[in-house]
Amino acid sequence: MNATTSPVNQYFKALQLDEQSNSLSQEILQNCGVEIERCLECGKCSGGCSNTHIFDYTPRKIVQLIKVGNEDRLLQMDALWCCVACQLCVDRCPSGIDIPRIIDYLRERAIDRGIVPTRPNVKLFHELMLDQVQKIGRVSELYLILNYNLKSKQYLNNAELGPQMFFKGKLNPIPARVKRMDKVKRLFRPKPGQKGVAE
């Protein structure tokens, strides 16, 4: 990238293929069935986006970064960890580009590469929730929140809601379990270093 480019212009004008570019758009076509090249650069995705006011890269810029194959920036961006997946961008796109699906794909890839997320608690929450699903097949909101507060060291997070939820019978102290857990466990990929999934 040109060193003299102003910060404002760098995302819009100086994006170009360089030696670090890769075939990301091809991969996204194969894995997500999304044709990036159909982007018209109209910006309707960013106009609709629920969280564009806090995104480091707007949906439009994300598509641009894929076009030029700037994978490093994409896998490290904050947008991966604060997209609410509200599906406004995909419904507004005249070319049907499924940006939420692409963001999921990139997030999955960032995790596989071990890239530290900009919002570690968001990733932690996903992991703890899926741990529960892998163990009992369902989510117990009470134990998930308690475990999350413990692991994220935010001991009083949401604690103010606890008593009222308890008295309104909204917290279930005995979580339900799936009986055929063998069938649920089979859906999970073995984690690195972990032996095959239990039959």
């Binding site: 999921d104 899926l130 699903v133």
Partner: peptide, 25 residues
């Protein structure tokens, strides 16, 4: 009968195949 969690929003955020698999069951 014996339904399992749909995985929202964690599963589709980190593992697309798992997300589809959970609902497919």
């Amino acid at each position: 009968e014996d339904w399992n969690c749909c995985g929202a929003t964690a599963a589709h955020s980190v593992d697309h195949s798992l997300a589809v698999g959970l609902s497919a069951r």
